[in-house]
Amino acid sequence: MALAGVIVTFLGFLLAASSVGLSSSTGVRLVIVLVGIVISLAGIMGLINPAYQKNAVWNK
């Protein structure tokens, strides 16, 4: 799950960075970038962190 989280997090960045090539509209770029940020945050908080929480000291 952690590996999937890393991939998702990185894909969020790629989506946001590629917004400049996908559209010339500022509004569309804004939406694409925000979606990219949300995807990256989901990768960190929804996948990577829970994967490590399973093995946390207090959770054993």
């Binding site: 997090t9 990185f10 790629l14 946001a16 970038v33 940020i37 990256s40």
Partner: peptide, 13 residues
Amino acid sequence: LIGVATLVGFVFT
């Protein structure tokens, strides 16, 4: 915001 996405998505990774 592209800078933010880079920090969250690239630097973190």
